Amino acid sequence: MHLFYTPILHEQTVILPEEESKHAIKVLRLVKGNFVNLVDGSGGFYKATIEQDNPKKCVLRIVETVKQFGYRPFHIHVAVAPTKNIDRIEWFLEKATEIGVNQISFLLCERSERKQVNLDRLEKVVVSAMKQSVKAYKPVLTDIIPFKEFIKNIQPDNTYIAHLEEHDRTPLHRINLRDSACVLIGPEGDFSPAEIKLAYEKNIKPITLGNSRLRTETAALVACHTLNLLYEMKIA
């Protein structure tokens, strides 16, 4: 299956972005009359035929449309402090997109070693994983934001903080899920006691991801996978 990404599809005739056009014509050697598939990142899945096989602007004509392709009646949000080694957070983005996630936010915490991210580069990782796993919904990426600011705007009823302090914590797989869930994952040095205290004051609930001490990106992926399983069992 040849699958391409192009956002905001409203017309029957579509011009692929130059990078996607080059891949279609120069790499895959597709020609006029060949059929391809498109996703728009908002749930649209399209079948199209190549009208002009130009490697700079490949022109397609949509012949079949499926709306809300792969729609899931729940919302998974992972807010994570990006790791010092950005390759590790890119790995998480790739795998979380393949498994299924609606939104990923980046947190700037007291113990964060990375204070900024290249959102354009990370968007490309997500788009590639979305196409590879044949998904029509692209996860929303939110640029890095201070932890204190982030928790001001969350819904505490469906937000959970995973930390390593010796507090009473509920295993994530035992929580009573609502239609959406947000899990907060701290940096390599964990959330600070002050940040945990702030979360508690906001009525964010503490959780544990198991007995093992996990790397940041592993913890974020475990949270994503666990939430997917819980929701799938809930709607089964």
Rank of each mutant, 00 (worst) to 15 (best):
P7M: 13
I8M: 10
H10M: 12
E11D: 13
L16C: 10
E18N: 01
E18K: 04
E19D: 13
S21M: 10
K22P: 11
V27N: 06
K32T: 08
K32Q: 02
K32V: 07
G33C: 02
N34E: 03
N34K: 01
V36A: 00
V36G: 00
L38T: 02
S42K: 04
G44E: 01
K47D: 13
A48Q: 10
T49W: 05
I50Y: 03
K57A: 07
I62R: 03
E64G: 06
T65F: 01
Q68I: 04
F69Q: 10
G70I: 11
H75S: 08
H77K: 12
V80K: 11
A81Q: 10
P82Y: 15
T83N: 15
I86Q: 12
E90H: 05
L93T: 11
E94D: 14
T97C: 08
N102C: 08
I104K: 00
I104M: 07
L108D: 02
C109S: 01
S112A: 04
L119V: 08
E123K: 03
K124N: 11
K131Q: 05
S133W: 03
S133M: 04
K138D: 06
K138P: 03
T142P: 03
K148W: 06
N153S: 14
D157M: 02
D157S: 07
N158L: 12
A162W: 09
I175D: 07
A181M: 07
C182Q: 10
C182Y: 11
V183N: 09
L184P: 13
A194Y: 08
A194S: 11
E195G: 09
I196C: 03
L198K: 04
A199G: 04
Y200Q: 13
K202V: 13
K202I: 14
K205V: 15
K205D: 15
R213N: 08
R215A: 08
A219S: 05
A220N: 00
A220T: 08
A223P: 09
L227M: 12
M233D: 06
